[in-house]
Amino acid sequence: MLDILAITTPIFAIIGLGYLARAGRIIGHEPLQGIGIFVMYFALPALVIRALTQNPLGEVFDPDYLLAYGAGSLVVFALGLAFTLGLEHKPLGTGAIQALGMSASNSGFIGYPVAAMVLGSPAAMFLALNMLIENLLIIPLALTLAELGRQTGNGFRGTLHQTALRLVRNPVLIGLLIGVLLAVMGRPIPAPLAKAIDMLAGAAGPAALFVIGGSLYGLRPKGMVRDMGQIAIGKLVLHPLAVFGIFLLLPDIDPLLLTGALLFACAPMISVYPIFGQRFGLSDITAAALMVSTLGSFVTISLVLWLMRHSGLFALSSG
């Protein structure tokens, strides 16, 4: 168990430092936002570019991983949407946002740092694959349905157009595009530029964790235990189980792919979840769900790592 704590404790210690920095007024809300912007617009795109250019493109884009992780995420999204619409009779917009919280992991800010501690350099490859799934499949699906639920009068085609415009401005997707183009061209990045990319990529993990911790300061559940609990359980329990189950259906399971997928699926929901929630009048519940899921992931990630150590299915030693 000590080796598990050796992996998880540094990660959540940095989250704790971010929280304490806000609580002690060492850093304010606006400077913290600045760090978050740095991570989102520079560090994470650099990390994705490095992942796509360090290995041959055929080794990065693994169709089995994309299929299994994407299918598992879609299953959880569909279950979450069906539950909120069919059993709780909530509006489509509410159902779509709650389902988003259950099925889209915080791959860049928590999933990657955890996977990097466990797997090393392959974690960047999994980050690139997960960014594709989340930014091209899960998030657009959720936002499109939520926009349709608002009945803004734009119609389905107008809603798709608005969603597409947001996506093309996404810095992570821009990084993905640049990385793919560089990988297809097959030309090495000039040494000074490659060094700058490495430096930015190296800052992604710790800076992202610090931002998560600072963002948790001041959040209060305010009597939203039921909805908050549903989203958190869906993300921390149902999503990893669904991804794990889909991978078991594959004819030949690659232990490395299974390990990476499960580690990323165990992460809490995307850090911008409250921003999406605010747009659709759900800022309180989404912020509370993010807080509970982030804190709860310390337990669930530690538990999954312990189970991995005692199973022959994963790319980990059993010691």
Rank of each mutant, 00 (worst) to 15 (best):
F247Q: 13
A123G: 14
G260F: 00
A204F: 02
I139D: 15
S317E: 15
A116F: 12
L5I: 10
K222C: 01
R226T: 07
P251D: 14
P268Y: 02
F126P: 12
R279Q: 07
L52Q: 08
V272T: 11
A207N: 10
F210L: 00
V237G: 08
F276C: 13
L32D: 01
L141G: 05
A21C: 00
L295N: 13
A289S: 14
R169M: 08
P206L: 06
G214A: 13
P122G: 08
Q98D: 06
A203Q: 07
F38P: 12
L47N: 12
V292Y: 05
L216T: 15
L248T: 06
L181Y: 06
F298Q: 13
L200H: 09
A46P: 03
L307W: 15
A115L: 12
K195W: 08
M269R: 01
D254M: 12
A13E: 05
I97D: 09
L148T: 15
Q162F: 01
M185E: 06
G95P: 13
E88C: 14
V225W: 05
L52C: 11
G80T: 09
V184C: 05
E88R: 00
L32G: 08
M102A: 10
R25F: 11
I253W: 07
D252S: 11
G155V: 04
L74R: 04
T163I: 15
G312F: 05
L47Q: 09
F276G: 03
L176T: 07
L193D: 03
S293H: 01
F61M: 12
G155W: 03
V211I: 04
F280K: 06
A289P: 06
G229L: 07
T294F: 03
A201S: 14
F264I: 06
L219H: 11
R169F: 07
K235Y: 09
S73V: 02
A6T: 04
L209D: 01
G28Q: 03
T286L: 07
G205R: 06
L263A: 08
D62W: 02
R187G: 13
L248K: 06
Y112D: 01
N135C: 09
A99T: 12
A116L: 12
A288T: 14
L66F: 07
M291W: 09
A267D: 03
A68Y: 05
M125D: 07
S121L: 11
G214I: 09
G234A: 05
I11Y: 01
F12T: 02
G120M: 09
G18A: 00
L167C: 03
A191T: 14
L47I: 03
A265R: 07
F12V: 02
G70S: 14
A13Q: 10
L143S: 04
Y41V: 01
G155I: 04
F77E: 12
I253A: 13
V299G: 14
I15K: 03
F247V: 08
L2R: 13
G120Y: 06
A183V: 01
A242H: 09
M40G: 00
L209E: 04
G95F: 11
I138R: 08
T84Y: 00
F12G: 10
A128I: 15
I285G: 00
V184A: 09
A123S: 10
P192W: 07
H161A: 07
